[in-house]
Amino acid sequence: MSTAAPSPTPVDGVAVRARDVRKSYGARSILAGVSFEVQRGELLALLGPNGAGKTTTVEILEGYRRADGGSVSVLGLDPAKDGGALRPRIGLMLQEGGIDNRSTPREVLRLYARFYRDPEDPDGLLEAVDLGRAASTRYRRLSGGERQRLSLAVALLGRPELLVLDEPTAGMDPAAKQATRERIAGLRAAGTTILLTTHELGDVERLADHVAVLDRGRIVAYGTPAELTGAGAPRVRFRLSGALTDGDGLGLVAAATGGVVPTARVTAAGAGNQYELEGLEDAPDPTLVARLAAWCAERGLLITELRLGAASLEERYLELVGAEAAAEAEGAA
């Protein structure tokens, strides 16, 4: 155990504040009044389908674009005016790598390191993101995951107070995704404020302190992952090997709850014999599961899937942004 704990930046105060931010390109409105805050030391995940305005929002915060209306404050500065003072304090990971094809990871890290007086050690970072063996490989020959890891390493050279990550795990294999996720969690734990855009809802559930869902230029939901998924609304989702008939519902509810929960009911929840038992008063308990299974067994129905408790973030997200966006997210994943 070390006695001298690392001293992270103060975790109080607001790192990022966007108020009623508006942006249009010609007649096309991209952001129609976006407001949110990122507290110092927290990780905010910005979710939304492609075209929702995530990248535009992030680029306004980074100072690449000016908002048409509203106000933006990043680490107490206006990115449109104080870019020079702001840039050394922010670490950026852009979607497009922005690295010359002919450069190698070691050269890129050493170049960006020279923009600081006292940067993080570039060779150490190279090892830390597991690019040691690819250190002298030209960028054009790196895999998608290697490029993403290099981009993350570049973002960390200045030990940034605020890290802006635009889809950091896109194009990574599962092992690299897991390693990157752990790295982000470590940075967050050490006090770095992080703004993350992603399509990986699993990442968000595990990493985010707060989630903002952006759809068609508006924040349509904001909260902790638990708040968003409506934890505590007790329900049981299950899939059966065969279909229930119209008369089965009441019998199933009575059997599963022991006939004591008048608000409970069974509804169809999607194709392939998926059902939901909702309106329960208490969180599902072992007895309920046993009774449900027994009821099904008597009728020769096999429970092929069973999930208890709240909706996943993915389910909630798809409810929020609609089926059209769902198909799009599927395509992008």
Binding site: S2, T3, A4, A5, P6, S7, P8, T9, R87, P88, R89, G91, L111, R114, F115, Y116, R117, D118, P119, E120, D121, G124, L125, A128, A155, L156, L157, G158, R159, P160, E161, R183, G186, L187, A189, A190, G191, T192
Partner: peptide, 25 residues
């Protein structure tokens, strides 16, 4: 000992280099 546990990329922010150093690099 804490140096060893600090994740790379965290801690006191680095200061920007001089204009000349950046232009030369």
């Amino acid at each position: 000992a804490a140096q060893g546990t600090r994740p790379l990329g965290t801690g006191a922010p680095a200061r920007p280099a001089s204009w000349i150093a950046k232009a030369l690099a």
